[in-house]
Simulated assay, not measured.
Amino acid sequence: MDQTSDPTPLADHDLAALVPEWIDWAEAARRLGVTVGKVRTMIRDHELAAAVPNPGEPGAGQRIPADLIQDGLPVKGLPGLLTLLHDGHFTDREIIAWLFLDADLPGRPIDALRENRGSEVKRRAQAMAL
């Protein structure tokens, strides 16, 4: 990823400020029509990503950006993208930061995925993961 416009390492971004809406695993399960156990499996299998938005907050737990779910499913193209970036040794926290930053594309990568414009997002993710 070309971070010339923002030299901050991905893991150091304030996710609470980048992501407009976070949901807990129970709400994700409700929106997906699955159990909380299935949500846990989806995170483990890189179908969804989760992170702690405010690590310094007492009792803070992992949450999922609400924008990763669309029409009762993970956003189209998201699972493949997550797998690709995990294979490139990116953490969920780094991936979420990248998805919600407006550094490379016109607009945020998450918006491009949600609008079915994932080809450029995937191309840039492949370049990052190498």
Rank of each mutant, 00 (worst) to 15 (best):
D2N: 14
D2E: 10
Q3C: 06
Q3W: 02
T4G: 00
D6S: 12
T8H: 06
L10C: 03
A11F: 03
A11H: 08
H13E: 03
D14L: 00
L15M: 11
L15H: 01
L18Q: 13
L18E: 12
L18W: 04
V19M: 08
V19A: 07
P20Q: 08
P20D: 10
P20I: 07
E21M: 10
E21G: 08
E21D: 13
D24V: 11
D24F: 07
A26S: 01
E27C: 09
A28Y: 05
R30M: 12
R31M: 07
L32T: 10
T35C: 09
V36S: 14
K38H: 09
K38D: 06
V39L: 15
T41S: 13
M42Y: 11
I43K: 11
R44I: 07
D45A: 13
D45T: 14
H46A: 15
E47T: 07
V52C: 02
P53L: 02
N54K: 05
N54F: 09
P55C: 09
E57Y: 07
P58S: 15
P58Y: 04
P58N: 07
P58E: 14
G59N: 07
G61P: 00
Q62S: 06
R63V: 08
R63H: 12
I64N: 00
I64R: 11
A66F: 03
A66Y: 08
A66M: 06
D67K: 05
L68C: 05
L68F: 09
L68T: 14
Q70P: 01
D71Q: 14
D71K: 14
L73D: 11
L73W: 10
L73V: 12
P74L: 05
P74F: 00
V75H: 10
G77N: 05
G77R: 11
L78G: 08
L78R: 00
L78N: 07
L81I: 10
L81V: 10
L82H: 11
L82D: 06
T83C: 12
L84H: 07
L85D: 04
H86G: 09
H86W: 13
D87I: 10
G88T: 02
G88C: 06
G88M: 12
H89A: 14
F90H: 13
T91Y: 09
T91G: 02
D92W: 01
D92P: 04
D92V: 02
R93H: 11
I95Q: 04
I95C: 11
I96G: 06
A97M: 02
A97W: 11
A97K: 03
W98Q: 03
L99Y: 04
L99H: 13
L101N: 08
D102H: 14
D104V: 00
D104T: 07
P106S: 13
P106L: 02
P106N: 15
R108G: 07
I110C: 05
D111A: 10
D111P: 01
A112V: 02
A112Y: 09
L113W: 08
L113F: 02
R114W: 06
R114P: 00
E115T: 03
R117T: 03
E120V: 03
V121A: 11
V121E: 02
R123E: 13
R123H: 06
R124M: 12
R124G: 13
Q126K: 15
Q126M: 07
A127H: 13
M128V: 09
A129Y: 04
A129L: 11
L130E: 13
